[in-house]
Simulated scan of single mutants.
Amino acid sequence: MSSIPAEAALEHIRRLIAFDTTSRDSNLPLIEHVVALLAGLGVDATLVPDDTGAKANLFATFPAADGGVDGGIVLSGHTDVVPVDGQAWSSEPFAAQVRDGRLYGRGACDMKSFIGVVLSRLPAIAATPLAEPIHLALSYDEEVGCFGAADLVRAMTDAGLRPRGCVVGEPTGMRVVRGHKSITVIRVDLRGVAAHSSLTPDGVNAIALGAEFVRFVEQVAAEFRESGPFDDAYVVPYTTATVNRIDGGIAVNTIPAACTLTFEFRALAAVDLAATIERFRAEAQRIGDEAARRHSAAGVELTVLASVPGVDTAADAGIVGRAADWGGVPSDGKVTYGTEAGLFDRAGIPTVVCGPGEIAQAHAPDEFIELDQIAACERFVDRLIDDLRVR
């Protein structure tokens, strides 16, 4: 088996990396590029734009030989990448370079190599008489909360598509991964009352209110760490919760009137997400009510910024065995990062995560992917196409 990717795949990956699709910016040039590729093969793409029209999801179906679109396999990936701000790169991040058996560039690992391989195989898919369809799904804003994928999956199901399996091509080293935790991101805005720091009874310290909430998050995290539930398939086998940002105060001699903190919790499938969110909301309410008794202007507001469901596909699900047959490496492990897999799973589409590269290389300066991983992904997609061929 060759460890060198085909030049066609490398060229598609280079083209994708050249599109600066940092989440804060538009992904439309990349999406329009894919639309043109599909149109050249006689395949119509459906776009699902965001509210501003500056970004869009895309899905397209290569139907079965009889024209049917029932069933089939989804190949899913996100088009956005994380920023390069403040990172020291050895080469231009949006101009892919091959050095020492690796391809470097922002998104090379996460996850434009997977998408590039799939795009390089579109002509083969179009030319193959398929027993069941192959669906392409590309989303925006995965890196900031899977916002695009939620609308994408909804649009696909609303269109009557009922795939019987999905492969999300996030970097797993081509291991077939059945599970990851959910991710919930929450902002807490704490309102105090400003006063001169020499007159503390006249004010309500919003940072102190925030510190009280931070202690509660740490308490909840300790409960999960000590009492579970547990799943030893994860590197961290319990639900985690952590406050990762706090903003507040204007001067050292002024009691702060405002404080904002943002935290996340990453939950195992056995954890009740709604109940956990409500527990945090109740504590925010308690702190706010106590502050309001001191001054009517004080209070606390909790906002859920993002909630991405986890996935825990059964080991005996058909997509798990098929992904292994296509060349994915069987694995009982689960990954620590989130993907759109949970959204497909929640829509009734059994899903695995399996793609080239290792997550340790994602998001970092000089992001790279080993060339043999791209070649392994090519073999995977080729076997998938052949498996779905009419016999």
Rank of each mutant, 00 (worst) to 15 (best):
L384W: 01
A108P: 08
F380G: 00
V144H: 13
V185W: 12
G107V: 03
E290A: 14
D80I: 13
C109F: 03
A6D: 13
A131N: 10
R286L: 08
C146R: 08
E340P: 11
I319P: 12
V236K: 02
A284K: 01
A56T: 11
G53R: 12
P49Q: 11
D110A: 04
V271M: 09
A127H: 05
V390L: 15
P237E: 14
G327R: 13
T339C: 04
V185L: 08
I369P: 04
L138V: 12
I4K: 04
I4W: 03
R215C: 11
D386A: 14
D386Y: 00
Y234F: 15
V69M: 04
L305S: 00
D80Q: 13
A315S: 06
R191K: 10
A131F: 02
Y337Q: 00
A341I: 07
A36E: 15
R294N: 10
A222S: 14
R24L: 08
T61K: 00
P29H: 05
R187C: 01
H363W: 05
F263M: 08
V35C: 15
A314C: 07
K55Q: 05
A95F: 01
A324P: 03
G342I: 06
E223C: 07
I255P: 15
T21I: 05
T79I: 08
A241C: 01
N244A: 11
P171M: 06
F147H: 07
S182Y: 09
R178M: 10
P63I: 12
L119Q: 03
V390Y: 02
A282T: 14
A258N: 10
P123M: 03
A149K: 02
C166Y: 04
D80P: 09
I125S: 15
A222R: 15
L138D: 07
S197K: 03
R286E: 11
P365K: 12
P350W: 03
T351D: 08
M156Q: 10
G68K: 03
V300N: 02
L384S: 07
A159K: 05
G299C: 05
I359A: 05
V308N: 06
S3G: 13
